[in-house]
Design a protein around this nucleic acid. Structure first.
Length: 708
RNA sequence: GGCGGGGUAGCUCAGUUGGUGAGAGCGCAGGAUUCAUAACCCUGAGGUCGACGGUUCAAGUCCGUCCCCCGCUACCA
C-alpha cells in the first residue's frame, strides 16, 4: 500500500437491475473486489466498499412495458433479488445502494449542475424520432419494427436481437413506437454533450503515469486515446431516469420536459451517492468526502472488461470536469469467464445464476472454485467438473482433511486442548518459521490484484501442513514420545489457525466455522469496517495464534464432497437450455446473444402490399468476395432483361462457389444501395437454418421469370 | 478490414524488466502410509512454449511476417 494513501474506497460495478447475478459477474468484478476488501479490513486498513443496483435505462423501461408494470416494480424486484443473493454469497459491501434512491438523484443532478455551471457541456440540436401519441422522443432502442434482415418484427431501432445485426431506426420496416405503437415522426430535440476531446490531453497524461495497471486495461485505454475522443451525449429523451435539473435547462434555454441523464452518466455517480448513504448511516453525513475528495484517499474500481472505457476515461473525465474528486488509483478489470467452453449468454440461458446455485450449495465452494480460475489475465473457463475437482481435491481433501485430522487427533489424544510446545524439533520450528512472512507475501499479491496467485500460495501452506503431519507421524510418536507428538499437534494446530485467517477473504464462512472448531477468537471481522473487540489482524497469521492449553471446539467436517450426481444434474440443466435455444432458428453461427426461437409471423398485409414486390428468377453468373469485407459477396445476376450487380451479406456462411451458376430468387425492384463503394441493385433471397446457415432459394425457371 | 487481448504439458492455467535444466493444480503410472472426509505424502512419465524468419553470447520472454481463437468496430438491401 502506497504510504500516501490513508484510506481506500473500493467500488464494484453496479449490476444492472433487469436480471439476476450470474457467475460471469462474480468472476469479473464482485469476487475479486470482495477478496480485496476483506483482506484490507483484516489488515486493519480504513476502507469503504460500495456498490448498488443500476436501475435506469431503456432495457428496464422496455421490460416494464412488456410486463405491463411500472419500471419501479421491475427494479424493486431485481434489486431485492440481487441484494439478497450478494449477501448470501458473502459480499461484504459497507453499503449497497440503488440509483432510484432520491439521494442519488440529488447527487447526480448536483453533479450535472456543476458541470453545466462550469460550462463543461456543449448543446446540440438534432432531429430524432418522436412518438406523437406518448408525447416523447424515442431512443433508438425505443423504436420497434421488422428487421429487414430476418423479418423479426420485434427488432430494436439500434439492433435486431434476433439476428444480431446492427440497425438504425430508419432501417426498420414498419417502424413503431415501443411505447404506444404509434408511427414515429422526426422532430428536433436538444441534448447536452460532454466534449471528451477537451480532456484528451489530461487523460493521456494521467493514464501515462499508470505503470501498475493491468496490460489488458492499459491496452484498451491507450487504443481509445489514440483514436481520439468524441463528444458523448449525456442526456436522453426518456420517461425513466434522473431528470435533467429544471434550473439548468432553463438557463440553457431548453425545455427539460421528458429529458433525463443518460444512464451511463448517472450510474458511476451511484458510487458517490452510495458512499454518501453510507456516511449518513455512520452518523456523519460529510464523511464521504474523506474518501472522494481527499488526495490521500485511494479509489479502486473493480469491473469487467466491458466497462473499461467508462471507468478509465469517461468517468475520470467527468470527475476532472467536476473538480475536487480523486481519480481512480487503479481499475483492475477482469476478462470474461466462459462456461463449459462457451461464452455466457443471458438470453440463451447459458449461465449459472447465483441465486439458484445458492439454493443447493454453499457460497464458499463457489467462491473457492471461482477464485482459482478468475480471468485476471485472459478469458478463463468454468466447468462443473472443475468445480467439483477444486472442491473435492483442494477444499475437502487438502484443507478440510488437514483441519479434520489435526483437530480429531487433538480431541482424542490431548483432551481437546492445544498441547504445549516443548523443546521443539528442527522440523517443528521450521514449520512455524514458515508462517512468518507469509501474510506479508500474500498481502503483497492481494494488493496488486493477483488473487489467484495469493490463493495458491496459501493452499501451498495447507499442503505443507499435510506433509509435515505425515513426516512427523504423530500416530507413532503418540505411543513412544508423547512430548514430540504434542509438539507436532501444536504446530499443526497453529498452522490451521493461520490458514483460517489467510483464507478468510476467500472463504469467509468456512474460516469462521473453522475458527469455531479451533476455539480461536479475537480476529477482526473481515466483513466489518470497524471491529472494536478485535485484537488479531492479518499480520498475526505469521505467528502462533493459539495459546497452549486452550480448549478446542468440536471438530466437524468443514467441506463435503461434491457428488457426481450434482455435477451431472448441473450439466444436464445447462444442456437443456442449450437444446431449447438451438431448436429455434437464429442467426449467428458463432452463437452470439439473441433469442433463437422461430420468429413470430409478421402482421398481415394486403395483397396489394405483396404486389409491390417484384420477385424474379435470376441466374448467378459471377460471385466473388468483396475485398476488405468480412460479409459481402458481389454477384452478377442475369435477370433475363438485364444483368445486375447484387451484394449479398453472406460471406460468413457461404463461399462464392456455392452461388455461381445457381438459379435464385431476386427482389428486383428494391432500391439500389451503395456499400463499400459498390452498388447493390437488388437482393437475393436466402433461407436461414437453425444454426444460422444460409442457403439461397433456388428456382427452376428461366432467368427473368416472375415469381408470385 | 481496423483496433485491443490471447495461442505454454491430456485438461484448466502461472510464467515480472530476455540468463542456472520451462512451472502449478488436476488427470495418468508407480511407491509409501493408516491419525484423517477411500483422505494425506513421495517419485515418475508427458511440452518443437501457434508457424517461419531476425536481433543477441543467450528468447516462451525483444523485432518482423503469417496462421488460428476472443472482444470492440466497419459494409449484412
Amino acid at each position: 500500500m502506497n504510504p500516501r494513501h490513508q484510506r481506500t474506497l473500493v467500488t464494484a460495478a453496479l449490476p444492472y437491475a433487469n436480471g439476476p447475478i450470474h457467475l460471469g459477474h462474480l468472476a469479473g468484478a464482485y469476487l475479486p473486489a470482495d477478496i480485496y476488501c476483506r483482506y484490507q479490513r483484516l489488515a486493519g486498513r480504513d476502507l469503504v466498499f460500495v456498490c448498488g443496483s443500476d436501475e435506469h435505462g431503456v432495457p428496464i423501461l422496455l421490460k416494464a412495458r412488456k410486463e405491463g408494470v411500472d419500471p419501479q416494480q421491475v427494479v424493486d424486484r431485481y434489486h431485492a433479488m440481487i441484494e439478497k443473493a450478494f449477501a448470501a454469497f458473502g459480499m461484504s459491501f459497507d453499503y449497497y445502494g440503488r440509483t432510484t434512491d432520491p439521494l442519488h438523484r440529488e447527487t447526480s443532478q448536483e453533479f450535472f449542475r456543476t458541470l453545466a455551471d462550469k460550462d463543461c457541456f456543449v448543446l446540440k440540436t438534432e432531429s430524432q424520432l418522436y412518438d406523437p401519441k406518448a408525447g416523447i422522443f424515442l431512443a433508438d432502442r425505443f423504436i420497434r419494427g421488422t428487421c429487414p434482415g430476418c423479418a423479426y418484427e420485434e427488432a430494436y431501432g439500434d439492433q435486431c436481437e434476433k439476428c444480431g445485426r446492427s440497425l438504425s431506426p430508419a432501417d426498420l420496416l414498419r417502424p413503431r413506437s415501443a411505447l404506444s405503437d404509434a408511427v414515429p415522426e422526426l422532430r428536433e430535440t436538444t441534448h447536452w454533450y460532454l466534449p471528451l476531446g477537451r480532456f484528451q490531453d489530461k487523460l493521456s497524461a494521467w493514464v501515462g503515469d499508470k505503470k501498475d495497471w493491468k496490460p489488458n486495461v492499459l491496452g484498451q485505454v491507450k487504443s481509445w486515446l489514440a483514436d481520439g475522443l468524441n463528444d458523448r451525449a449525456v442526456t436522453r429523451d426518456l420517461p425513466w431516469g434522473v431528470p435533467v435539473p429544471a434550473d439548468v435547462a432553463r438557463k440553457a434555454g431548453v425545455d427539460a420536459e421528458g429529458k433525463v441523464l443518460y444512464v451511463w452518466f448517472d450510474a458511476p455517480i451511484g458510487y458517490i451517492s452510495a458512499t454518501r448513504r453510507w456516511a449518513e448511516a455512520q452518523g456523519d453525513p460529510e464523511l464521504w468526502k474523506d474518501y472522494w475528495c481527499s488526495e490521500d484517499s485511494k479509489l479502486v474500481h473493480f469491473i469487467g472488461k466491458d466497462n473499461i472505457v467508462f471507468h478509465c476515461l469517461i468517468f475520470p473525465a467527468m470527475l476532472m470536469a467536476h473538480g475536487g474528486f480523486v481519480l481512480p488509483d487503479n481499475v483492475p478489470a477482469n476478462e470474461f469467464l466462459n462456461l463449459e467452453g462457451d461464452k455466457l449468454s443471458t438470453s440463451r440461458g447459458w449461465a449459472v445464476w447465483l441465486h439458484e446455485y445458492l439454493e443447493d450449495m454453499p457460497a464458499d465452494y463457489l467462491r473457492y472454485a471461482l477464485a482459482t480460475t478468475l480471468p485476471e489475465g485472459r478469458d478463463t473457463d468454468f466447468s462443473w467438473k472443475d468445480y467439483q475437482a477444486r472442491v473435492n481435491n483442494e477444499l475437502a481433501d487438502t484443507l478440510g482433511n488437514l483441519a479434520n485430522r489435526t483437530l480429531t487427533f487433538a480431541k482424542r489424544y490431548f483432551e481437546g486442548r492445544v498441547p504445549p510446545l516443548e523443546n521443539p524439533s528442527e522440523a517443528d520450528r521450521a514449520l512455524l518459521a514458515g508462517l512468518d512472512g507469509l501474510p506479508e507475501r500474500v498481502g503483497e499479491l492481494l494488493e496488486t490484484y493477483k488473487m489467484r496467485e495469493a490463493l495458491s500460495e496459501i493452499m501451498g501452506l495447507a499442503r505443507e501442513g499435510n506433509r509435515y503431519f505425515n513426516e512427523q507421524k504423530p500416530w507413532v510418536t503418540r505411543k513412544e514420545d508423547r512430548r514430540t507428538c504434542g509438539n507436532t499437534i501444536h504446530a499443526a494446530l497453529q498452522l490451521v489457525a493461520s490458514l483460517s485467517v489467510l483464507l478468510d477473504p476467500f472463504i469467509p464462512f468456512s474460516c469462521a466455522s473453522l475458527r469455531g472448531m479451533l476455539g480461536f477468537e479475537g480476529l477482526r471481522n473481515s466483513a466489518l469496517r470497524e471491529d472494536e473487540e478485535a485484537r488479531i489482524h492479518w499480520a498475526d497469521a505469521g505467528r502462533p495464534l493459539l495459546e497452549e492449553g486452550a480448549v478446542l471446539g468440536k471438530p466437524e467436517i468443514l467441506f463435503h464432497k461434491v457428488e457426481d450426481s450434482y455435477v451431472e444434474a448441473q450439466l444436464k440443466k445447462l444442456e437443456a437450455t442449450r437444446q431449447d435455444s438451438a431448436e429455434g432458428s437464429g442467426e449467428n453461427a458463432g452463437g452470439d446473444d439473441g433469442e433463437e426461437d422461430i420468429p413470430e409471423f409478421a402482421p398481415l398485409i394486403g395483397f396489394e402490399d405483396f404486389q409491390k414486390l417484384d420477385l424474379r428468377v435470376g441466374k448467378i453468373l459471377e460471385a466473388d468476395r468483396v475485398k476488405k469485407s468480412k460479409k459481402l459477396i458481389r454477384c452478377l445476376v442475369d435477370l433475363g432483361r438485364e444483368k445486375r450487380q447484387i451484394l449479398a451479406g453472406v460471406a460468413e456462411f457461404l463461399d462464392p462457389e456455392d452461388l455461381i451458376d445457381q438459379q435464385v430468387i431476386v427482389v428486383a425492384n428494391l432500391a439500389p444501395r451503395k456499400m463499400l463503394g459498390l452498388e447493390s441493385q437488388g437482393m437475393i433471397l436466402m433461407a436461414e437454418g437453425p444454426d444460422g446457415r444460409l442457403s439461397p432459394l433456388r428456382a427452376d425457371a428461366a432467368p427473368g421469370s416472375v415469381v408470385r
